[in-house]
Design a protein around this nucleic acid. Sequence first.
DNA 1: TGAAGTGACCGTAACGGTTCAGAACCAATT
DNA 2: AATTGGTTCTGAACCGTTACGGTCACTTCA
Lengths: 341, 341
Amino acid sequence: MSNAYNRPDQLSPELRRRVLDTARRLGYPGPDPVARSLRTRKAGAVGLLLTENLSYAFRDPAAIGFLEGLALACEDAGTGLLLVPANPEREDVASVHRAGVDGFVVYSVPDDDPHLAAVLERPVPTVVCDQPDLGTVDRVGIDDRGAMYELAKHLISLGHRRVGVVCMRLARDRNDGFVTAERQHAAHFHVQRNRLSGLAEAFSEAGVDWSQVPVVERFDHNMASGASGAAQVLDKDPQITALVCTSDVLALGAMTEAARRGLRVPHDLTVTGFDGIREAEAAGLTTVRQPVLEKGRAAGKLLLDSNERSRPRSVNLATELIIGKTSAAPRGGAEERWFGP
Amino acid sequence: MSNAYNRPDQLSPELRRRVLDTARRLGYPGPDPVARSLRTRKAGAVGLLLTENLSYAFRDPAAIGFLEGLALACEDAGTGLLLVPANPEREDVASVHRAGVDGFVVYSVPDDDPHLAAVLERPVPTVVCDQPDLGTVDRVGIDDRGAMYELAKHLISLGHRRVGVVCMRLARDRNDGFVTAERQHAAHFHVQRNRLSGLAEAFSEAGVDWSQVPVVERFDHNMASGASGAAQVLDKDPQITALVCTSDVLALGAMTEAARRGLRVPHDLTVTGFDGIREAEAAGLTTVRQPVLEKGRAAGKLLLDSNERSRPRSVNLATELIIGKTSAAPRGGAEERWFGP
DNA sequence: TGAAGTGACCGTAACGGTTCAGAACCAATT
DNA sequence: AATTGGTTCTGAACCGTTACGGTCACTTCA
């Protein structure tokens, strides 16, 4: 039977035809993929776990780029891509247990996410992306810390000393407001933690007391968050000359808030982002470009040819500092601001 | 055993603990999802089939919106979403046979796509989207024909009589060039066929000989196609006053070509799109807005509560004609063009 | 004291394929 | 006639789980 469908050379054409005929006559719908998977121990799909609601993957430009790259790797291998629903609100990891996949890609979830723990318990190869190196599974990412350090050096060389920061969520709990040094240091999101730490290091080296720098966190990642975060920072210290955002989306939001306040970018305020999404390029944003598509593709490749016996691999992709037209030297003295718009 | 994991109430806490303990000691990785699926006849995932390479889904704005809506419906139901790799170049439908899913959503594939045929043979509920009503499975879509008819009426009322068209691929074979009446009529993509037919009807009613209207087809769907398609139409008949594109992406590309030629939109040339994507709104494009996200969500909902015994449902969502700033009455006489730039 | 009732626990039969060993068959060689 | 070799075909084991019915001990009530 199975042979008739999958191994035509194993039997005579006549028998094959007869088998297939009666199969059709009996209304047999063809081999059941699940039963086949059980026997062959191959699901023909890889699972993708992300920190956010499933639909978030289609709203965030960087996530979309990552997905596109991952999808490219999958279709090259003829593998399906299963988006695993992992509601971050609930601790329900059943969806991870239920996923019939040959491996997992985990994209930017908090270190202590129960879904991640559930994935690691599954006896299938796993690639984590934008996560700390666990030592036990493959990893792909960038040098977030170094890239942000370089961006900060750029701002410092322009003369910025009084800055503010808007960052994405740092942990699973919602904290829309200022961030303590404590919380910065203990952030559960690898990416955010390292970007902040790169910033802190560069500015500390330049003699800035980092503990005095206003850092505002936003749970939701969209332009509105960037705008309101920027507002909160600017309210706290109107004299900052540069606003560093840990993502382009936040930075684009911050730009709208600056415009709303009549602050000209970069003349009155320097704004920087991170990611290098298309919209940022169009806006001429100073940012760090990271190869999101390549990241997805690399993750897929790593997963799909994981030789059981190779030690966990760790891949760092290159980033590029993009100096756009949203960064410039600060205006003369801060007191000038009194005569500003 | 199974009970220890899934049915804590069926056994004493003490035994449960003991079972789980020894399971851990023996290195038992938890119940196998594939075997579970086989037994329970539930895969916990729905499959998505689209006409293009998998990664296309993440490049096309309308497809992204659809996916987001579908993902929303899935996460509401706690279901996974499996992207089925269906390379349109190859006739290989194995990926459809291999997909362990509880149902399929088919999004905008050609009528004669072998993958679609393979899906229909699978004994699982299916929802087709942007496809003709097959009568046997659920369908969700819009009134492409009516919406385009309405758009055409708008152009006609502005005074346009000499127009050109750039459309997306009409069949599985690549035909980057002019389209015969034959090919328009026999188009295998339901959406394109109906949009063209709505156009043809409206303009025919207005006394235009549709067989003389230049219609250009592009296989790849991106802005570059829109630009080159516009170029081809304008080369053929420089005197057209309006360029109708069957998607916003094509229209945005057409706008760049118009700009390159020094044609001011809408003063020298009216350009219209279809879909109502964000970028079109930003550009002030005259277009038909369709609720792509709702379409995805509706498809998911339909699939996820498909009562076995209900007759196939057909859902048409409402569209809205958006009159932007890329459409206006044609300039005086066409001969004026001779003094143009 | 015995019958009936209640839980907790256990054993087994599918689920629907794939795989592989070996049976059956036929032809050719010794 | 018996051995060998090769091909085609059949049957059974296995993949790992869940559903279900049955056993067993223990309680309750007449």
